[in-house]
Simulated assay, not measured.
Amino acid sequence: MPTLDVRDVPPVDRHDRIHDAFAAMEPGETLTIVNDHEPKPLFYEMAAEVEAFDEEGYAVTREAADEFRAEFPKRE
């Protein structure tokens, strides 16, 4: 399961990097994003724009005040 920590990536570059990593995955894989906030805007963007995103399988957990782990599964 690929993991992408974007906490040190400038906010303006985060979504592009995440979209590229998601597109590079095989169907059935899940991309785990480590972020400094809950990525709700990214969830809505992916749900609206990325047909391969399995929004039913999306999950997010808060590990620390500045660490959220969100799972973005790709449809098989």
Rank of each mutant, 00 (worst) to 15 (best):
Arg62Pro: 05
Glu55Gly: 13
Glu71Trp: 13
Glu63Ser: 06
Pro27Tyr: 11
Thr30Ile: 05
Glu63Ala: 08
Pro11Ala: 04
Glu63Asn: 02
Met25Thr: 14
Phe68Pro: 12
Pro39Lys: 03
Arg14Trp: 09
Ile33Asp: 04
Leu31Cys: 06
Gly28Asn: 02
Ala65Trp: 09
Met25Pro: 11
Phe68Asp: 01
Pro2Thr: 04
Glu76Leu: 14
Phe53Ile: 12
Gly57Asn: 09
Ala65Ile: 13
Ala48Tyr: 12
Ile33Ala: 06
Glu38Trp: 04
Ala64Met: 09
Lys74Trp: 08
Pro2Leu: 02
Glu76Asp: 05
Arg69Gln: 04
Val6Ser: 09
Gly57Ala: 01
Pro11Leu: 03
Glu26Trp: 04
His19Asn: 04
Met25Asn: 11
Glu76Pro: 15
Lys74Cys: 11
Asn35Gln: 07
Ala47Glu: 00
Val9Leu: 15
Val60Cys: 08
Glu29Asp: 12
Met1Thr: 07
Arg17Asn: 08
Val9Met: 12
His19Trp: 14
Asp66Thr: 02
Phe43Asp: 00
Asn35Gly: 10
Met46Arg: 03
Ile18Arg: 03
Glu76Val: 05
Ala48Asp: 01
Asp16Glu: 06
His19Glu: 13
Asn35Thr: 07
Tyr58Leu: 01
Thr61Asn: 10
Pro73Met: 02
Asp36Phe: 12
Gly57Gln: 02
Asp54Lys: 14
Ala23Asn: 01
Ala47Asp: 02
Glu38Gly: 14
Glu51Ile: 07
Leu31Met: 04
Ala59Lys: 08
Thr30Arg: 01
Glu29Cys: 07
Ala23Glu: 08
Val60Ser: 01
Val9Gln: 00
Phe68Thr: 06
